[in-house]
């Protein structure tokens, strides 16, 4: 899941060219913006006529990824560097990319294990990636220490 780096970035780029619609949102890494980010993506995806459950699934996944960027990527310190939320719609699918320029993830495999957290003192449940995986069809994470983290996710909408 963490391999084939080129293929993933290229795939994102290629599919984007066929997208029916696109959005991009830049937010300061503040917890106040978590609900703004997930509600914005939820509103954007209504064009695909999703079920309520599909909307909730995407909201949860976006919330987890954005919260990770704020807490872990930027270590809860705020600052001027953004969290960038991009999404596009192709036929019956939403593709989402959530990016930060924070500290990066040391060991992605470990970070994605359920219940693993580097911040137990903040009572992080360690379920963030597990929820993204459970609620989306595809999840791919790229990270470089000191450079930041990019989460790619997609989900088929309708026709299940």
């Amino acid at each position: 899941m963490v391999k084939q780096k080129e293929a993933w970035s290229n795939g994102w780029q290629m599919n984007q060219e066929e997208a029916a619609n696109r959005m991009e949102l830049r937010i300061m890494p503040l917890s106040e913006n978590e609900s703004f980010a997930r509600v914005a993506v939820a509103a954007f995806m209504t064009q695909l006529d999703p079920t309520l459950e599909e909307v909730e699934d995407v909201k949860t996944a976006v919330s987890e990824a954005v919260t990770n960027s704020i807490i872990h990527g930027y270590e809860n310190k705020g600052g001027d560097k953004p969290v960038i939320i991009e999404a596009y719609l192709t036929h019956r699918r939403i593709h989402i990319k959530i990016e930060d320029r924070g500290v990066g993830i040391d060991d992605i495999g470990r970070a994605m294990e359920p219940l693993f957290t580097t911040k137990p003192e903040l009572e992080r449940s360690g379920m963030g990636f597990a929820f993204m995986e459970a609620f989306m069809d595809e999840l791919h994470v790229e990270s470089k220490q000191g450079r930041g983290t990019v989460v790619y996710m997609s989900k088929q909408i309708g026709g299940q």
Binding site: T60, R124, M127
Partner: peptide, 13 residues
């Protein structure tokens, strides 16, 4: 109406 893994952390704690 909405809860993510942060809520799980609060309950578990």
């Amino acid at each position: 109406k909405f809860m993510d893994s942060s809520g799980i952390g609060v309950i578990a704690g």
